[in-house]
Amino acid sequence: MHALSIKDLSKKYKSGVEALKSVSFDVQEGDFFALLGPNGAGKTTAIGIITSLVNKSSGSIEVFGHDLDKELAKAKSCIGVVPQEVNLNLFDYNFNILVNQAGFYGIPRSEGKKRAEQYLKQMQLWQKRKTNARSLSGGMKRRLMVARALVNRPKLLLLDEPTAGVDIETRRMMWDFLRDLNANGTTIILTTHYLEEAEQLCNKVAIIDEGKIIENDSMHNVLKKLKTEVFILNTEKPLDKAPEIDGYTTALKSPQEIEITVSQEQGVNDAFSTLQTSGVKVLSMRNKNSRLEELFLDLTKGQPGEGE
């Protein structure tokens, strides 16, 4: 079953900006779906329309079979959303924020309290239940927004850059949590500028650019389209110039760093053999960018930004 089905969705703002141009894509139930794109590509507009915070210009959306134009309340009951910007009531107690949100979804207060406790504990915020959101750090606010999005136990969770600006520890904790959530049946749609995050978490990916979907496939298939990868090799001794290796493009990034471009069918064995013959000892190797990032840059011909 489709968790989300979008057909010919368009949005033209009053300013004349066409944020979405006849966008269509489906998300299957159980998917962990990455919606990627550069700044202003239309990701947040798409999330806004799905959650009815933005009015569409044309097109149709179904959430678990409920048409947003005909069964809006039923569709909304299936959705939880973590927005890009902090939108918490900064003066209310964190516990109350969750209990109230549960109430708005028709969950009785006694049950809402239980769920608030469960998700505050899971997000490691239970100690902060009696403080207000204003006193939380940036990472804690993000976790609180995740907890709030879960109180109605949504079948479809929309995350608009949920880990923007959070520390590495929190990000890893969120990744583990989201993986578990997805494994337990929640369909998740994620927008992020951390392409490593999408590569690590998601099984499906759509790339949107200038309001149009330019790629939509499984993560595995999308990554297969990557023609070349760039690796950084750290050498034991400093070099004067980049070693020449037949069939590979090399460059010296620093005296002890060689950048080497490898096409998909080439592999790296030949390069290492040549380096060994030349007496260059390689201590370590890493991808210059994540594979998805390479593909993203190739497809969008630009740079991934810091926010939309």
Binding site: T51, S52, K76, I79, V81, E85, L88, F104, N152
Partner: peptide, 14 residues
């Protein structure tokens, strides 16, 4: 202004 009106707008509340 704080944006938490969205708590209501995304919910099924009429």
């Amino acid at each position: 202004i704080q944006g938490h009106i969205e708590e209501l707008l995304v919910s099924p509340l009429s």
